[in-house]
Design a binder for these strands. Sequence first.
DNA 1: GTTAGTATTTGCAAAAATGCAATGCTTGTT
DNA 2: AACAAGCATTGCATTTTTGCAAATACTAAC
Lengths: 302, 302
Amino acid sequence: MYDTKMNWDDIKIFLEVARSERLSTAAKRLSIDASTLSRRVHKLEESLSTKLFERTVEGHKLTQNGDKLLQFARQMELNASQAFKNITDENIQNSGQVRIGVTEAFGSFFISPHLIALQESFPNIDIELLHFSRNVKISRNEADIAIAVEKPKNTSTIISKLCDYQLQLYGHKTYLDKVMGRIDLSQLSSYRWVSYVDNLLFTEQLSYLKELDSNIKPHFQSTSITSQYTAIKSGLGIGILPCFLAEQDKSLIKLCSNEIKVIRSLYLITHPESKRLSHVNSVWQYLKQLVADKRTVLMPDN
Amino acid sequence: MYDTKMNWDDIKIFLEVARSERLSTAAKRLSIDASTLSRRVHKLEESLSTKLFERTVEGHKLTQNGDKLLQFARQMELNASQAFKNITDENIQNSGQVRIGVTEAFGSFFISPHLIALQESFPNIDIELLHFSRNVKISRNEADIAIAVEKPKNTSTIISKLCDYQLQLYGHKTYLDKVMGRIDLSQLSSYRWVSYVDNLLFTEQLSYLKELDSNIKPHFQSTSITSQYTAIKSGLGIGILPCFLAEQDKSLIKLCSNEIKVIRSLYLITHPESKRLSHVNSVWQYLKQLVADKRTVLMPDN
DNA sequence: GTTAGTATTTGCAAAAATGCAATGCTTGTT
DNA sequence: AACAAGCATTGCATTTTTGCAAATACTAAC
């Protein structure tokens, strides 16, 4: 993992030196002796095998690596102060920060609209929606709750199926007019397709086209589902879109709805260490309830 | 701020005890003596004036406050390991994590679609989009770059105007049919309005209706702009929407476009400590370029 | 060129933290 | 009931860290 010889407390004092740019003033602010400070900074540099400061006449200036450390040290400081605040403040029930990691489409078009309602239900919970372009690493604590299209291999996580969602073929009038308003199922590869950039997919779950017809060569590719949506809307071609995204836009026409139908699942993932926190669990339950309520948006055919 | 007497390194060892649930095994894993461990855990508890563990026969079980600390301790661990990785790995130029804090509308409808392109331009930069429902506190390091509708009062931040964006009055055919397809400017308060929940606004910048006619009483209110969008779309009433959101949906009709026009600005905010990091600066520049390229989407009339 | 001033580092004694051995506590076994 | 085993804690000698004072380095002013 990482070097446990690094003393986290030295990072705390590093922060102060980086900000004061002067060992002596940092020492005063920390109420420790400048000599101690000097020695501890050197110790930290040794444990990282790098120089963190350039000792100039103008004081301690951060090196490039010092800058890098500063970035994370600041986050550690934020966490430490949040921890302190959470613990010493009168224990407000069901309060704290919950970071939800989502994929683009589900995040922007399904969760986002209900995020604020969630915040109204739990005024003391601070929700953060994180858009990751790859799978969130719950085990690495990048988020408290992840919503993913595939189950992580990782064993140390709590996984619960959130829902199924349906995807269908959609097109816009502009393009359909060009192809006489009909899609011939036996000639799928002759149309202009909008899809993901194959080799940039972080999961096989999104390679819909291969399931339909391996001969299809997409005409417009994007790693962003929103871009695909916009492309289809502007008549660039046809493509597979989640119904919860496409159905809210009446200008899109559902095509071959009985023949072409893709079902995918979403999984709710968390870490045992997070799950037992009441506020994380509240959000978990809320999300479960939300998809239950919006079942018809996710699976229009059921 | 917070108690500086808290030793961050004690949080590191706390983590191990919380996970091992056993002082002795935690000691082995940390290669320090169990007695030291015991003393340091007690010291941490003292400095926080709280009990972190319930010492039971089954080992050290976290208390409620222990759980709270664990949550933040895990994040600190992630940060520490990222810092270590970033510094010890061969210095890959322009790499690292950049957290962009955005508001709902701009995040979901403007940034999100281009987020992946950004990631393609800078493959070594990890982008995180954070949706905050309030102003992001850059000074507290909640994000590396914030995009906000008003300048923060805080002096210690770097602020740069990102762009102006235009908002207009929109409605859907469903509702317009009910009011004979015309909006009478002298009778604005007689229509059904969709808007924000006044007293929940985190900034005055979003109280558009007061500027138009103080007599308007909204018929549908939501703190979520996406919900307002959906409400207007479904014919619940008319409302002010950002053009970059509404223009992409041809089913919405722009109303009184010459008479009712709201202009707002967005500001790019960062912290001096972040700004000098090359990867944060790269993203900053990218965002500047992006709004320049998409000028017409943000300000259709110019 | 000398001197005063400020800032960081080093020497050393005092203070604090650590490891080891021993103690006390509980549980499960004979 | 006695005993062994496992665990957290305490006493004490040892090691490490700390603060103070002194030393060193460097600049700026006269």
